[in-house]
Simulated assay, not measured.
Amino acid sequence: MVDGLAQNPRGPGKAFGSKPYMHLSFYLMIAALVVTGLQVLYALRQLAIVAL
């Protein structure tokens, strides 16, 4: 992989084969992680309410 970066004069985008929807998939992954975190916080809140 490092050799591909060194040999490709167009930079890491072409060496790694960047796709046009790479940014969209990255933003969707971040959104999914945020939603999952909110669900975990809500579940912990519900457990805390039941425990009291």
Rank of each mutant, 00 (worst) to 15 (best):
M22C: 09
H23Q: 14
P12I: 01
G11I: 06
G37A: 05
V50G: 00
L33E: 08
V2W: 01
N8R: 07
G11V: 05
L5E: 06
Q39M: 12
L38T: 08
M22T: 08
L38W: 05
T36V: 15
L38C: 11
Q7W: 04
Y27F: 12
L24A: 08
A32I: 12
G4Y: 13
V34K: 03
I49L: 08
A51D: 03
H23Y: 15
K14T: 13
Y21D: 06
M22Q: 14
P9F: 08
A32P: 04
H23D: 03
G13H: 07
Q39E: 10
S18E: 08
L33F: 09
M22R: 12
Q7K: 14
K19M: 04
I30V: 13
Q46D: 01
A31D: 04
G37S: 10
L24R: 10
P9H: 06
L5V: 03
P20L: 02
T36P: 01
Q39L: 11
Y42A: 15
L5M: 10
A6M: 11
A15T: 00
A32S: 10
N8T: 13
P20V: 05
I30E: 08
G17K: 02
V2N: 15
V35P: 04
H23V: 08
K14C: 02
V50A: 07
L44R: 12
F16W: 04
R45T: 07
M1V: 13
A51E: 01
Q39W: 01
V34P: 00
T36L: 15
P20Q: 00
K14N: 07
V2A: 14
V35Y: 06
K14S: 09
D3K: 06
N8Q: 10
A51F: 03
Y21Q: 15
V50W: 01
D3G: 09
P9M: 01
L47H: 01
A6Q: 08
L44Y: 02
L24H: 10
G17W: 03
F16Y: 11
L41N: 06
F26H: 09
L33W: 10
V2P: 05
G11M: 04
R10C: 00
V34Y: 00
F16S: 02
Y42Q: 12
Q7G: 14
Q7I: 09
L47F: 01
Y21G: 02
P12C: 05
V35G: 04
I49W: 05
D3L: 04
A48S: 09
A43W: 00
A31K: 04
H23N: 09
Q46Y: 03
A6Y: 01
L33T: 05
M29N: 10
L52Y: 07
L47W: 04
L33P: 07
L47R: 14
A32H: 06
R10S: 08
A15E: 08
L52W: 07
I49K: 15
A15Q: 03
G13K: 08
I49V: 14
S25Q: 14
L28T: 10
V2L: 15
Y42S: 13
L5F: 10
G4P: 03
L24K: 09
K19F: 05
V35C: 07
Y42E: 14
V50E: 04
Q46S: 13
Y27M: 15
I30T: 11
Q7T: 12
F16D: 07
V50C: 02
M22V: 12
V40E: 08
L28S: 13
A31E: 00
A51N: 13
L28M: 09
